[in-house]
Design a protein around this nucleic acid. Sequence first.
RNA 1: GCCGGGAUGGCGGAAUAGGCAGACGCGCUGGACUUAAAAUCCAGUUCUCGCAAGGGAGUGAGGGUUCGAUUCCCUCUCCCGGCACCA
Length: 818
Amino acid sequence: MKKIFDFKKVEEKWRDKWFEGDLYKAVDNDKGRKKKYVLVEFPYPSGSGLHVGHAFSFTGGDVYARFMRMQGYNVLFPMGWDAFGLPTENYAIKVKRKPQDVTKENTDSFREEMKSLGFSFDWSREVNTTDPNYYKWTQLIFIKLFEQGLAYKEERPINWCPSCKIGLADEEVVNGNCERCGTKTSKRNISQWIVKITAYADRLIDGLKDTAFIEKVKAAQINWIDKKEWIDITYPIQGTDETVTVATTRPDTNFGATFIVLAAEHPLVGKLIKGKIKTNQDLDEIQKYVKATLDKSELERQKEVSEGEKTGVFTGIYAINHLTKKPMPIWITDFVLGSVGTGAVVGVPGHDIRDFEFAKQFGLEILRVVVGKDGDQSEITDKKQVQEESGVMINSGFLDGKEINEATKLMMDYIEKQGWGTKTVRYHLRDWIFSRQHYWGEPIPMIKCEKCGWVPVKKSDLPIKLPEVERYEPTETGESPLANMQEWVNTICPVCKGPAKRETDTMPNWAGSDWYFVRYVDPLNKEFIADLSKQSYWLPVDTYIGGDEHNTLHLLYSRFIHQFLYDQKAVTTPEPYYQRVSHGVILGSDNRRMSKTRGNVIVPGDVTAKVGSDVARAYLMFIGPFDSTMAWNESALNGVKRFVSRVYSFVADNSKKFKEDGSPEVTHFLNKVNIFSKTALERFQYNTVVAKFMETMNFLDKVGADQVSKANIEDFVLMIAPFVPFVAEELWSMLGNEYSVHAQKWPTPRKTSIVEHSMELPVQINGKVRGRVTISDQISEFELKKLVEEDVLLNRHFEGKLIKKFIYVKGKIVNVVV
RNA sequence: GCCGGGAUGGCGGAAUAGGCAGACGCGCUGGACUUAAAAUCCAGUUCUCGCAAGGGAGUGAGGGUUCGAUUCCCUCUCCCGGCACCA
């Protein structure tokens, strides 16, 4: 009688039992075993429940963690909640409930779903960024940053979302729109806490060499930081005492500089408008242009880029080119950004596309100072002739004949020697705007005293808990709703005991997720962020599994905070993560990103209700490479379901019948499966492992249970256990073994009488496979040649032809060239 | 535009220190079981010529290195992800 796999019964049987004991607990400071810290990015517990993307990446992590346990490692595989954030706040506003309560509900249901999916998290280490016992440390980190001069308050234009009524970091503005709600953002001046991440720019680059991140992740980080050597050149302005300082990375082309362009924000523009610098140009016109530019949003500016139109206005004043002594007209334009370099650029229209377009537009002089590979020395009249990236200098005095990179170095030294300018290193990376004007975040633990200025809260007063407020909406002024809480806001200065006010801004989402992996090491510690001896055992994270979308910012911010904590001797390693593994994305069955509006969202709960957790897990691991983009395919799910059912039935039906000795062929086959799976698992090639298990099942069915020994089948159950933990546990117990299969070691290949003495060797004629011959592994090349020549199927391909060459790659292939 | 990744049957994908292309799954075709369907099981399934034996073509396009290239090199096309008037 065939036993049918009843996943509900099996899952219910084991689900809770696993968490009653210490099965998945990581043991601190276990010197007897090697440790492995496997981390998956903790989720934001949204109200809509676990997403299939979560199920996918967590399954990947879980398979790895289980495999590593079987390899004898002491595995730390924790889970927690990145629970601060706008969706919960917005939901709370909508249904008029406390975000704390909503969060509690969401995390409870997430945890239950995760247990149902069989994830082997060590729940004794669960953390929650919204727990005051957790954010106490997030706040302390901020205070430390402030004390080290790495956090400062500054009024500066920020991106403002009129809908969310919140200031956004540059990174949160996507194409001029709010990342969350899509509303067009504008600029607004607000006093913000800024964190000086740029102070760590070099170390963020250098530290990468101590990690095993894949190239694309390292590249993303380095490109984002984008360290370059610049030179700031100061030019005198004709007929005044004023100067203008431009910033450039390409001084080599300076002989070709014919104009200067200023950003609308440039101080010189202000002086001009106020009449402090004389000009014959129409001041009204200049003012009009400047105002229009400053009012423009990033989006509008970008639109103009795609249209390729350059705009600008002439100031009427000139700077003198040191090299050519020629006057260069100074213009104002919107394509120069105030926040980049010095906000002033020297225009070299021959060798910069933007400068060329600008010069064309306004009839400015275009000089050629670089010749490209094509040798074209003619006047530059077309965009295509503009040599930007490579070439050799001409018309450039002492630089003539030099290659541009060499010329750049020479010119930088020359300019410095002449006292015209100074070399400086700049980064694309900007300081980090750390303030949010919302309720559901960590309060920034700072107090503004009328006398003492900004002072941090006393450490003994931490955590500064979020007070319960009536309304969670941001205030009309754009301040956080905390600003309305007079009794909370008004406090006394920790230094002078005078009247003072609390900061009402809260921290950005990143704050809690920057250091959570440290807390997992020692989540209940009341005295310290995490005990140093426990840290030195567990850190760094060995394998960090996460999405590509976090490869730049999350990784950068979190590495920065970690490096800072290392300097403060609060953590034990200079880098937080050793290996970074990116998981792929699962698209809807329509091959498009899952979204509610498209109605193509797959929820893991629906899948597990139909086919059970094991099948869902195995399916997710099977549909494609772990790091690629895949589409959900319901019918492929059936294939995996079939496989799991077959395994179950095969073992269950024969559980009492497996003999001591099976066929050596079976052992031999399983040994190969073992070695293949082990290697593939180490490389996260899950899809090929599942495929190999399917192949194994096909093989077992073919040979029949009477050829399979008990040891064989136990080995197979052990190997599939990381993928299908419920079925494996059930079958393990059916086979009469003690609980639990998940506490077992990965099987060792077994001895078998089979040694491959003979093999089928493929034979190529002129590089094309034409047949095969059976050979013994002792065969000599001479014997083989004879064998091939006498083979009826093969020799007709070279009958009457001359064998020019006979190539035998031992154990692989033969190629006959005729 | 820049950086990164990719392109293999009807589909998802296997196979790269250069060596049997298409593992495994889906789908499809035929068969068994069934009153029937589903489920399950068996056989087949890159395209193409051929009744067959067998032949020809074939890993985005073109070229190169090699006895031999999906794999290495050069040129190009398209797709995906990220960044972008960064001077």
